[in-house]
């Protein structure tokens, strides 16, 4: 029989080798998957996407900006542009590069997968917001057309991604860009966040860390060259203008109620108290949001905290005569008005 100490040592070695291969993020398999990103097809698709983005936003697109976005040297970017032109996806005019009809439809296909995937992650999974973009960058190059359509069908053919960007249809339709920068609001003006730019990633992470999300109501308090001070759903937020510029807003409709004071979440209700539901945060998405509304949590609903679980969370609320348990993380996203 093998000596137990030796057997344990052998086991340790095998476990270490397995870890080397399969650990998430730092394992060899994960590295290999990331390395595939550098492939030619990926570069072509990323370049098309970038050029489309420039045209959509009406900004000028250069070899340098492509090199910067794709993280490749400028000469390689120039080479790539030539290749795209040869493939008939690009035409070079006097004022920079333009997508041909083919190039545009190719770009839209890639963008469709990207945004659908982000929407899927946001609505249906527990993947955090900061990882959506990176995951979609992988998915957009790997999903087949059939897989994409199946995904779209599964999540109800959404028209907008979680950042507020429109998702192109299968036939390549996309509505024109609407909305304006948060910076264009004057003091005291109300608006709704319609889009949060998800690139660069660090900026997006800072914005999400502030609790900002699409659908939030904002009111400009003051802005100058150093900082922008505004209320988001009633809470004050201060951002550098450069960051604030990544938020796009649209005017509010007349019917919507203006939020003037900080919103109080359902978690502030103690057992025995009751209140009216004011709104459900747009950060609560997908299936969870629909389920909650099915159970009767809609603006105006009277809600009463009945009891807390023996372990402290969840809490059971009486909603339209039924007793419904809500986890704290979800109750925090329901805003109430105590009478």
């Amino acid at each position: 029989m093998i000596d137990p100490a030796k057997a344990l040592m052998l086991f340790g070695i095998i476990a270490a080798v397995a870890a080397l291969f399969f650990l998430p993020k730092i394992g060899l398999v994960a590295r290999w998957k990331r390395a595939r990103r550098g492939m030619q097809r990926v570069l072509i698709e990323d370049a098309l996407k970038h050029i489309f983005d420039c045209e959509y936003k009406n900004i000028h697109c250069t070899t340098e900006s492509i090199a910067g976005t794709l993280l490749i040297p400028t000469d390689q970017a120039a080479e790539l542009l030539t290749r795209l032109a040869v493939m008939g996806l690009l035409s070079t005019g006097d004022n920079g590069v333009h997508l041909t009809a083919d190039g545009r439809s190719y770009a839209l296909r890639v963008i469709r997968v990207h945004r659908l995937w982000e929407r899927y992650l946001a609505d249906e999974t527990s993947v955090p917001a900061t990882e959506w973009h990176a995951s979609a960058e992988l998915a957009e190059h790997t999903l087949t057309a059939a897989q994409t359509e199946a995904l779209a069908a599964q999540i109800g053919n959404p028209h907008f991604d979680p950042h507020g960007d429109p998702i192109p249809t299968t036939s390549g339709e996309i509505p024109p860009k609407v909305g304006r920068s948060l910076l264009s609001l004057h003091s005291g003006e109300f608006a709704v966040v319609t889009h949060i730019e998800d690139e660069p990633e660090t900026v997006f992470a800072q914005l999400t860390a502030q609790g900002l999300h699409v659908g939030m109501q904002v009111m400009m308090i003051e802005r100058n060259n150093d900082r922008v001070r505004f209320a988001a759903n009633g809470e004050e937020i201060v951002l550098a203008p450069l960051l604030a510029n990544n938020l796009t807003v649209a005017p509010m409709t007349e019917e919507e109620q203006r939020i003037t004071a900080p919103l109080s979440p359902l978690t502030t209700l103690s057992v025995g108290q009751e209140a009216h539901v004011l709104s459900i945060s747009k950060a609560m998405r997908g299936h969870q949001r629909r389920r909650l509304m099915d159970l009767g949590v809609v603006p105006g609903t009277m809600i009463r905290a009945e009891m807390t679980s023996a372990s402290g969370d969840p809490t059971a609320y009486s909603i339209r005569g039924a007793l419904v348990a809500l986890r704290r993380q979800h109750a925090e996203m329901i805003y109430i008005k105590k009478d």
Binding site: Q154, G156, H287, R290, R291, D294, L295
Partner: peptide, 8 residues
């Protein structure tokens, strides 16, 4: 079911 609108 509570509804016929969701996707379960």
């Amino acid at each position: 079911t509570y509804s016929l609108l969701s996707t379960s």
